[in-house]
Design a protein around this nucleic acid. Structure first.
Lengths: 234, 234
DNA sequence: GGCTGGCGATGACTTTTGTCACACTCGTCA
DNA sequence: TGACGAGTGTGACAAAAGTCATCGCCAGCC
């Protein structure tokens, strides 16, 4: 948890929960926000640790995850610049419900519980904004539960690929090309399974002619066909 | 959605998110809260419906759940008197992320989005209280994800029984006796599986001498032994 | 070069989960 | 009384998930 003298001027203004604050309020907050730098893989906070405040991602990305006794992990959320994390445990006084780690080198701004609560009381709109972002977080969690409870690994993998294709797929002559940004291990913990099943299901999709695997780059021949997968046996 | 002329005086004061309001504020709110009565099994709102406001449970119990295309259901939460439900979609403007249905005959108070938002702006503490209850809701969801992702049906069943035993188990000469308050079907959708597996796993626990099944009443011989189950192969 | 470590693929196997079909029990109600 | 329905129990399967072990590739490094 190294500290840095570091001006973090314009950052907070871009954070959804702080939008709408006046210049003065922002600088007030900026003065109290403590920047912290993390190297790739470094733990920001561990599940169960007492919660001392919230973080805003300034640069880099953070992974929020649960880990199990036998070494598996389940990713709950991945947050990039502008996202706030751990807004919730700040209020209910409990400990962090999951762990957070930097994915790449990252800078976070730490805002103490006290400062933040004071801010919320002084500016009810902030609390409402927090409720809004928390709402979307809750939706995401419910979505994870739905997928885990109702669908197969194959299905979850297909949705993952489709989401990815939608976001950063490149159209080519053959179809849509995407780059797997993460290892199979990481992909597995994002969709709630193990390394081997990711590998196997990818191969199987290839064998079925849905896509082509070239190293870490995939070409999906037909998005519609893959999508149809999802509705076939859900 | 029948309506009832019905005085709901003291109820709101007992709802956590409204505690701390003045008498005047409470009556203000009470005047605008619309009581609605539901019969057992009746739907309060369906997943995906536009969110018009939140509900406070006055009497009875409400089940919040997701349903899948092939008829399975996953229970997210069960809320009794004093709980508020659907606080979150009120803020992010989206639709209800899951469905809600009355378990038994129930009375709910409906508070419109507008009234509630106004209240939060006027009384920042209310927003903070909401954040607190939302926090615990989020913890519960994360807990569900953890169980679904890391554990087996057997494990989840054992935890369910232990929680139940803790809450309303009666010590007898043989061990702790509990009454299954719900059908196997319902139990299954609470722990994320199907009817048959609940039945089978219960039988198996009995065969292994962990407990005795007599109709809907179970006797757990040794809580410690059952608890040990949880840590053996998680 | 050769060694090593991380990652991916894959075969063999076990366990768990889910599906389908059917029988049984126990009320309720005509 | 008997039919019906809801809920339960269970056997037989089939499919999915997970584990273990092994192999190969490639990049980094001495």
């Amino acid at each position: 948890m190294p500290q840095a003298k570091f001006t973090s001027g314009p950052t907070l203004a871009k954070v959804p929960i702080f939008s709408g604050l006046t210049e003065a309020e922002l600088t007030f907050l900026t003065e109290r926000a403590v920047p912290r730098r993390y190297t790739a893989g470094e733990i920001v906070f561990g599940e169960g640790a007492p919660c001392s405040g919230l973080y805003v991602v300034e640069t880099g990305h953070v992974r929020i995850f649960k880990s199990s006794a036998n070494g598996r992990e389940q990713v709950l959320s991945i947050d990039g610049p502008g996202s706030s994390i751990a807004e919730l445990p700040v209020f209910d006084g409990g400990s962090y419900p999951a762990s957070a780690a930097a994915i790449d080198d990252a800078t976070l701004l730490f805002i103490s519980k006290q400062d933040f609560q004071a801010l919320c009381l002084a500016h009810p709109q902030v609390a409402l904004k927090v409720l809004r972002v928390v709402g979307s977080r809750l939706r995401r969690l419910v979505g994870i539960i739905e997928e885990l409870s109702f669908t197969t690994v194959r299905h979850r993998l297909a949705s993952f690929l489709l989401r990815l294709a939608e976001k950063e797929g490149k159209r080519t002559r053959e179809g849509v090309e995407i780059n797997l940004p993460v290892s199979n291990q990481e992909l597995a913990s994002q969709i709630g399974t193990v390394r081997e099943l990711v590998s196997r299901n990818l191969s199987r999709l290839q064998a079925e002619g849905m896509l082509k695997i070239e190293g870490r780059s995939l070409t999906i021949y037909d998005l519609k066909a893959l999508e149809a997968e999802l509705h076939s046996a859900e």
